[in-house]
């Protein structure tokens, strides 16, 4: 409760243009954001997080406070990733694909690409559920959607990922 109040106070201060307050907010979420960004794209993770913070800073006045700061900034990051990689050509790392013993690496690489192509509303749920270990109930509370919607989105997201991986199966 105390941290929630503190976050709200910091958000209010940040809305007034207080850079220090925004930096405090950044400190609270940077590790988690970077972790997700790193899982999706290890090469550009730092840039993605940096861009996310800048975009969040420039649009903090639009933040209505209906969700937590993390959920809001997380959505910004997922949208950024989606926009950045939506039209980008898929380039599998040749070294990984050529090495047949390294099937796990290949799977990870494909999943990474698939996650960048996934619509933010699906990739967000996948990352929350699989990478951050939130329960379906918690996700429904965070995203303010029904539990059934969370389940159906997870199912659809997995279906898309499966389709993507099968479609791009090189062997």
């Amino acid at each position: 409760m105390k941290s929630n109040l503190n976050e709200k106070f910091l958000i209010l201060q940040a809305k007034k243009g207080d850079k220090e307050a925004f930096s405090q907010l950044i400190k609270q979420v940077e590790k988690r954001l970077f972790n997700v960004a790193y899982i999706i794209n290890p090469e550009d993770a730092e840039d993605i997080v940096q861009d996310t913070f800048l975009q969040a800073y420039s649009s903090i006045k639009k933040f209505k406070g209906k969700s937590s700061f993390y959920t809001w900034i997380y959505r910004i990051m997922m949208n950024l990733i989606y926009k950045k990689y939506k039209r980008k050509k898929i380039n599998f790392k040749k070294s990984i694909i050529k090495n047949e013993n390294n099937k796990d690496e290949e799977l990870k690489e494909k999943l990474r690409i698939a996650l960048t192509k996934l619509h933010p509303k699906f990739s967000q749920i996948i990352t929350l559920f699989y990478f951050e270990d939130y329960s379906i109930k918690e996700i429904s509370e965070i995203l303010n959607i029904k539990e059934g919607t969370v389940k159906s989105r997870i199912f659809k997201a997995k279906k898309y990922l499966k389709k993507f991986i099968e479609k791009n199966e090189p062997f």
């Binding site: 796990d104 799977l107 990870k108 999943l111 699989y130 997995k158 499966k162």
Partner: peptide, 15 residues
């Protein structure tokens, strides 16, 4: 979906 879940788990571990 086993393959997908496995892949996601691997990604998480790597992270």
């Amino acid at each position: 979906f086993e393959k997908i879940e496995k892949g996601l788990r691997l990604l998480k571990e790597e992270g």
